[in-house]
Each structure stands twice: as structure tokens, then as C-alpha cells.
């Protein structure tokens, strides 16, 4: 479902003496349907960079990133927009929303964007928010004033609202208590059971051991510094 081959990436900082910083070379990786692959490696090793290249907000310098048949590294913006609407979900570490929009609408939005009816989308959103223990009295409020853990759960609910065939998870259990952590792990297991291909970053080792079928150490993709 997700197939990465010979992927490389460098940042060129034009305003800092045009410094070129190679951050990734020759990355190879695949995730099959129903499989969860965890990225490991020290902070700064390139886990998030790799995830962002799959999501398409970082450009690849060379290589191929196939997600459900589309090469994200070469795709037109509108093809990536469609991929994100239908095929590829992303739970980032930060919730970015239009202020003032009620939590339930934030969660239902991916479904509304796919043309799902208002009632059905709201019902699915309500179901997920209840499972993730967001009190019902908060559903009509904007999540911008919520605590970090609450925002993260709203973000997870939003990411799981539509059954995407491929999912990117960036630290989905990072600031959660034990109860909510187990809810998130159950959501991940269910997504795998319905055939989703999942690529994730989990610093929580126990969580990683529980849901990941394999791990990939991104340090293998660190460019060799020329002497």
C-alpha cells in the first residue's frame, strides 16, 4: 500500500548562505495492507521527515513514494488533495483547526468532505469522541481551548473518522493516560484488521511492541557525510 524506494531529501537554506543539508539518502520501505510499521531512530534522525514526504508536505529530492498507486513524489497538487481525502489519513502531533468550529464538526469534517451526509458524519464523530472519553458537554465547543491530551484525542478521532486504506500516525499515544492509550491502541488494531496500512512513530515502546508488526530504523537512511 505504501512503497518507498531510493528516496532522498536535502534542505537548501537560501537565507543562510545557501547551505545544503542532506537529511536522507536511499530510503527503502514498504507497508502492506493490514500491517503496522514503526519508524525508530533518535530524535533528528529523520522519522518525521520521512512521514512528511509520504504526506506530501515535504518534497522529495529523488525517489519514489507510492501510496495506493499514486507516486506522491511526482504527483500534481490536486492528485495529492484527492489522495488525502480518500486514501491517506494523518494523525499529526498538533491539531490545526479554524478557531470557533465545534469539536464534533472538526471530527466529522473528513467525512463531510467525502460527501457523507450530515447526520451520518455527526453520528460517527459522536461515536469516536465518546470512545475517546471526550465529555459530551465539550462537543459543541471549539477544541482550541482544550488541554493537550484532549486536543490529541480530538485529532485522533478526526484521523480515524474515515476508514482510510493508509494511515500515518505521529506519536498517537504521546500525552495520553492509560485508559485513553488503550482506546487508541484498540483503534489501531481495528484499522489493521480492516486492512489499513499504517506507518507510525511511537516513542512509547510498549505501545510500539503491541501494535507494530515490524520496525524500521531510519538511521539506515542517514546520508553518509563526505569527509
Amino acid at each position: 500500500m505504501i512503497e518507498i524506494s531510493n528516496l532522498s531529501k536535502a534542505f537548501t537554506l537560501h537565507n543562510q548562505g545557501a547551505a545544503v543539508i542532506p537529511v536522507m539518502a536511499n530510503a527503502n520501505l514498504h507497508v502492506r495492507p493490514g500491517e503496522c510499521v514503526g519508524l525508530i531512530g533518535a530524535s533528528g534522525a529523520g522519522k518525521s521527515t520521512l512521514m512528511r514526504m509520504v504526506w506530501g508536505n515535504y518534497l522529495a529530492a529523488s525517489g519514489v513514494i507510492r501510496v495506493g498507486g499514486l507516486d506522491v513524489a511526482q504527483a500534481q497538487p490536486r492528485q495529492i488533495i484527492r489522495l488525502r481525502r480518500e486514501t491517506l489519513g494523518y494523525v499529526s502531533q498538533f491539531l490545526r483547526v479554524v478557531p470557533r468550529v465545534p469539536t464534533i464538526d472538526v471530527v466529522a469534517e473528513p467525512l463531510r468532505n467525502l460527501g457523507v451526509g450530515e447526520d451520518q458524519a455527526q453520528a460517527r464523530a459522536a461515536d469516536l469522541l465518546a470512545r475517546l472519553n471526550i465529555p459530551q458537554r465539550l462537543w459543541s465547543l471549539s477544541p482550541t481551548t482544550f488541554s493537550g491530551g484532549e486536543q490529541q484525542r480530538v485529532n485522533i478521532a478526526r484521523g480515524f473518522a474515515h476508514p482510510y486504506p493508509a494511515l500515518l500516525l505521529d506519536e498517537p499515544t504521546a500525552s495520553l493516560d492509560a485508559v485513553n492509550r488503550s482506546v487508541v491502541l484498540a483503534l489501531i488494531e481495528e484499522a489493521k484488521a480492516r486492512g489499513a496500512a499504517i506507518l507510525g512513530i511511537f516513542h512509547d515502546e510498549a505501545a510500539r511492541d503491541q501494535v507494530c508488526d515490524r520496525v524500521v530504523d531510519v538511521r539506515a537512511f542517514t546520508p553518509k557525510v563526505a569527509a
Binding site: F11, R52, G56, N57, Y58, L59, P77, I80, I81
Partner: peptide, 8 residues
Amino acid sequence: LTDQVLDD
């Protein structure tokens, strides 16, 4: 893409 131009 908007987030690509802003993030990278």
C-alpha cells in the same frame, strides 16, 4: 500544495 509550500 499549501502545506508543502509553507512547510518546505
